[in-house]
């Protein structure tokens, strides 16, 4: 353990870029087709990336809250909303159906991370986990968990980075 700590500290003391970028991993879209996550970077608009699953009630609440607030938020600043389901083969069909019925599949970019490569690449341990990536794909905000009202931090951050 001691060696590990020393190694960690040594690594941390280097001049690495810590602001994590969107990783190059493949996920599925609503129709099952694969897409590389980096292709979401458009150089113009930032995006909210939210990790959710059908077994995560707070995640569903968070996405509903964002869905509800999105028209108002878009009046204030331009952004895109990406909902990443980490449901695996057991419940991914349910996740797709839920995203369709709740309007997320049409108003958000709905992605399905079936073997959780995207989740691991961003070091997501618990859901809900939300990120904001700027127009160049650099991570500028992250938050674990959702409590009613937490979503207001997202629009504040989006406005802040648009200035």
């Amino acid at each position: 353990m001691k060696k590990l700590l020393i190694l960690t500290i040594a690594l941390l003391s280097f001049n690495f870029a810590f602001a994590q970028q969107l990783p190059s991993v493949s996920v599925e879209q609503q129709n099952g087709e694969s897409i590389n996550v980096t292709s979401l970077i458009d150089g113009e608009t930032p995006m909210i990336v939210s990790f959710w699953s059908t077994t995560c009630k707070p995640c569903i609440k968070e996405l509903d809250a964002i869905y509800e607030a999105m028209p108002d938020w878009l009046d204030e600043t331009d952004f895109r909303m990406v909902a990443v389901s980490i449901d695996d083969a057991r419940s991914v069909a349910r996740a797709r159906s839920m995203a369709e019925a709740r309007g997320w599949a049409s108003d958000f970019t709905a992605l399905y991370d079936i073997n959780q490569d995207f989740k691991r690449a961003l070091n997501v341990n618990l859901t809900p986990q939300v990120f904001i990536f700027d127009k160049d794909g650099n991570q500028v905000y992250s938050h674990t968990g959702y409590l009613p009202g937490s979503e207001s931090e997202l629009i504040e951050k989006l406005i802040e980075i648009s200035e």
Partner: peptide
Amino acid sequence: KYLGQLSGSFE
């Protein structure tokens, strides 16, 4: 000076 990117997690 881009030395790459380090990321991780502890739980």
